[in-house]
């Protein structure tokens, strides 16, 4: 049994897509009648190749993009009914390029949402110190600027910033995609440990099957703007669905020096 969240969630999905479509102004359909339910506290991985619509799906949730059709609910309420600024501050957002403000110290970067939410300074400071430790950074880093940090450190700051105002939902768009393999593995491990403690609803976009299997409670495989399957990692590796099988084969094969002839 999962503990019920203090916000009184009664088991309804945290995020629901009902026949959600997204069409570009030029008529090209990027997302076709997507049906998807994301449960509170799960890590739902959106997996697929570039251009399959996974990032579009993510940006519809915090209304960086607006759906052309269908219904999309966050915490039981249609995103159109949400005040868009409120909605975004309820949802943490982490992207591959991190997007730290280069002219702000790490402390100001992490404390940004609390600050614009009007928290008192000492509470922001306290929260930042707490978050810096949560994401495994040296507290002394708080007074530095983003350019003085390594890629891995910057992404940790990105995660801390997204968590700052304690949002129940996190959207992560290939957050570890630009990191070297060792740093990526380290951050993935810490992500799991963190999620064990915090139990957020997370939508995680990746094209890396290994990452999807490692981090996801469920994997939604997308292709050409449509949902192909949705399954647990165990079901995924045993699936006979052709596209899933193709993924598994490509992954299992791995690179072998003999292939190079």
């Amino acid at each position: 049994m999962k503990e019920s969240r203090p916000d009184g969630n009664d088991g309804r999905p945290a995020i629901e897509f009902h026949k959600v479509t997204y069409t570009l102004p030029n008529g090209r359909e990027l997302l076709h009648e997507l049906d998807l339910e994301i449960r509170p506290g799960e890590v739902l991985v959106l997996l697929g190749r570039s251009g399959c619509g996974k990032t579009t799906t993510l940006k519809l949730i915090n209304r960086l993009l607006t759906a052309s059709g269908g219904e999309l609910k966050v915490e039981g309420r249609s995103v159109d009914e949400w005040d868009v600024i409120r909605l975004r501050r309820t949802i943490g957002y982490v992207i591959q390029d991190v997007g730290l403000f280069p002219h702000f110290t790490i402390e100001r970067n992490i404390g940004l949402v609390p600050k614009i939410e009007g928290w008192p300074e000492d509470r922001i400071h306290q929260r930042v110190q707490e978050l810096v430790k949560i994401v495994g950074l040296d507290p002394q880093i708080a007074s530095r600027y983003p350019r003085e940090l390594s890629g891995g450190q910057r992404q940790r700051v990105g995660v801390a910033r997204a968590l700052a105002a304690d949002p129940p939902i996190l959207l992560m768009d290939e957050p570890f995609g630009a990191l070297d393999p060792l740093t990526r593995a380290e951050l993935q491990r810490e992500f799991l440990a963190l999620q064990n403690r915090l139990n957020r609803t997370i939508v995680f976009v990746t094209h890396d099957l290994r990452e999807a299997l490692l981090l996801g409670s469920r994997i939604a495989l997308m292709d050409a703007g449509k949902l192909v399957t949705i399954s647990t990692p165990e079901e995924f590796v045993n699936s006979s669905e052709p596209l899933v099988a193709a993924y598994n084969t490509a992954f299992a094969a791995g690179p072998h020096p003999e292939e190079r002839q």
């Binding site: 960086l64 975004r88 501050r89 992207i95 997007g99 403000f101 614009i116």
Partner: peptide, 13 residues
């Protein structure tokens, strides 16, 4: 930088 703007917007600025 586009990513800086996207992050700011996404965080609800």
């Amino acid at each position: 930088d586009r990513s800086v703007i996207e992050a700011g917007r996404g965080m609800g600025m």
